[in-house]
Design a protein around this nucleic acid. Structure first.
Lengths: 361, 361
DNA sequence: TAAAAAAATGTGTGCCTACACATATTAATG
DNA sequence: CATTAATATGTGTAGGCACACATTTTTTTA
């Protein structure tokens, strides 16, 4: 099956009776072209509908882009942060032939110093772009100040520090995720049922949590028909299962009428197991499709999970930087990922999508 | 920022003390290489971690791929089928430089003959691959028989004819979508509430609808605690608003206790308007993020929409064919898209994702 | 008006691969 | 051992583009 060839610069040159060198100067606005030929070439570009071949261009330029990612380390093999990381890795493969390379750096969520160390290492590496999950706000600010100085573009992922010069933020709308959780909770409960909001503290995640909780409460307060029960929030200053269990027991003994729990991070599975063990018919909503959460959802111990497409986030971040480098595309400053509502009945399709792609060659 | 260059075939040649011609023969298993040099080159590939540059390869081959899509025509500007079409178009742009070209064909959902005509046109065109929405089963079977004869690979999208030689099916799990709808409905209603399943007929969609309805009923029958109310189904043999309204009125007068409606296609917006007009507090679940459905959801007249990522479907189909052509990747035969649960609170994020990408260059 | 300077335009090479073709090496045959 | 056949190996070119450099044309200056 043959079809019309694509227009090349040689075609333009022929049309305008000039050499490809002149065409090239026009295309790249390098000047040194007489006005009449300039016009003629521009006419050719329009008339022949010229689109430069990105492949050939890339090949000719032989450019090399190095980006660094700085994410929290994956404590468990299937923890949340392995997912954005996966998205980055997969996207980098797509752009490998275009000269893109990525160095993945990790810091510990329990150690600000590790963040600083890795950040410095990135600065030393002098990359072309950075993908950053700015969970330590203070340290992140110091880091991006250096990036700004070196004019290295950076993309925030998953979390955001407002009013910075980041190229883009790719992640959830935290308040919106609270709204979604509120709606889902209200659809399962009666308006007078009591609800518990459960926060965990670790590092600087606090500020985020507050916004999620705010959104959740906002949903109920925006309607007089809803949320006539109590909505309490408890913050457990630990992510240890023992600590959580203890706090939970304390709370439930005091508040036996609790009908729904909203866990503002990815650890709903711990609560789910607790509910199952104590045969508590309490509705449960949490975040993220971790292995453990998937299991508890399938066991019927989690009713809704809200997922923020962590893999897509990673892939989008890479794509954003690449398009900025190669095509000078300026992305939207804020790009909220869809908040996927996961239930037992549709979770398998989402898992399938998470699975690595098939064999090569 | 400089970094180690990527390994080229020249590097391999140097390492193995042969010419690039020999390297090429090894890479492409063209034979005519002495065993010792063969081994040496293979060693070089491993040691230098060689990955052929897809860009240079594509450029060198100068290959041209032509695919055709055969979808139902878009009756309204924002109808369902404009979305997969959008996905195809956008993906084709991504692969344009790789020599991919797509001819979009459309048939009328009310005219089998138009399908046959376009199908024949595609056969005449002798494309390298086809993306097909096989909504007319009988005619589709004739079409793919011809495709099989000509060894033209094809991908089913949105709908599937079982047991064919299609490269892949990309679309929803229909029964699963019924399960999801069932779960969502049950979460909103009491177990003894009456439910109406609403089907519309147009063309051969019937068979699909039956499966969706089956899934919906299956969900309720699988639990003794649920679905103790009546679950009736009505099939309206038209998609005209007037006809639908009449049938609905007839039904509601006979069944005033109806508490929930499940519309098995994308026309929930019509029912939504009816409910609003008559002030009926009936829960409503439908499919697909059409403009009209989005509006009614925002108005509060639709509770849940189930979306099957129509844009992704189109994009995935293109990607599948391309990877099959270029990288000989064999896709999974069935790829069910995630069933997105859309509510008023998360619809905006999904709309944003649907919007066309930003400016170029 | 010739020479020098400036501006405009053209040419050639590299990027990496695939493939046709040319050449070199080895094996087989009389 | 010379000759042919078979096999192995090397070379050249195309593909579209960017860029450095060479060459031509025009303008300026003495």
């Amino acid at each position: 099956m043959s079809t019309k060839r694509k227009t090349t610069i040689q075609d333009l040159a022929d049309y305008a009776n000039v050499s490809i060198g002149t065409v090239d100067r026009v295309i790249h606005k390098r000047g040194k072209v007489s006005p009449d030929k300039q016009k003629k070439v521009e006419e050719a570009i329009k008339k022949l509908n010229f689109n430069p071949n990105l492949l050939a261009r890339t090949l000719a330029l032989g450019q090399q882009f190095v980006i660094c990612s700085l994410f929290p380390g994956t404590t468990h093999p299937n923890s949340y942060w392995s997912l954005p990381k996966r998205g980055v890795t997969e996207a980098v493969v797509d752009y490998r032939d275009y000269g893109l390379e990525c160095h993945a750096m990790e810091y510990s969520l329990f150690d600000e110093l590790s963040f600083v160390e890795k950040a410095d290492a990135i600065i030393d590496m002098n990359p072309d772009g950075v993908i950053l999950a700015p969970l330590f706000e203070k340290e992140s600010l110091l880091f991006i100040k250096k990036l700004d100085e070196k004019k290295i573009p950076y993309v925030f992922i998953d979390a955001v520090i407002p009013n910075q010069k980041n190229l883009s933020y790719i992640g959830p709308d935290l308040k919106g995720s609270g709204h979604v959780a509120g709606k889902l909770m209200s659809s399962m409960l009666n308006s007078f049922d009591d609800i518990l909001i459960l926060n965990f503290v670790k590092g600087l995640e606090n500020s985020h949590i507050n916004i999620i909780e705010k959104g959740f409460r906002e949903f109920f307060s925006s309607s007089k028909d809803l949320g006539n029960g109590k909505i309490n929030s408890v913050t457990v200053p630990s992510i240890e299962e023992a600590d959580i269990t203890r706090e939970l027991t304390k709370y439930y003994i005091k508040n036996p009428e609790t009908k729904g729990v909203f866990v503002t991070n990815s650890r709903a599975h711990i609560i789910a197991k607790y509910h199952a063990m104590h045969e508590l018919p309490i509705k449960l909503i949490g975040f993220d499709m971790l292995e453990a959460n998937i299991l508890e959802m399938k066991n019927g111990n989690i009713d809704f999970l809200i997922s923020q497409r962590p893999i897509s986030q990673g892939a989008m971040a890479v794509k954003t930087l690449f398009e900025f480098f190669v095509q000078k595309k300026t992305p939207a400053k804020i790009r909220h990922v869809p908040l996927d509502i996961i239930i037992k009945e549709n979770i398998d399709y989402h898992i399938k999508l998470q699975e690595p792609v098939n064999d090569k060659l």
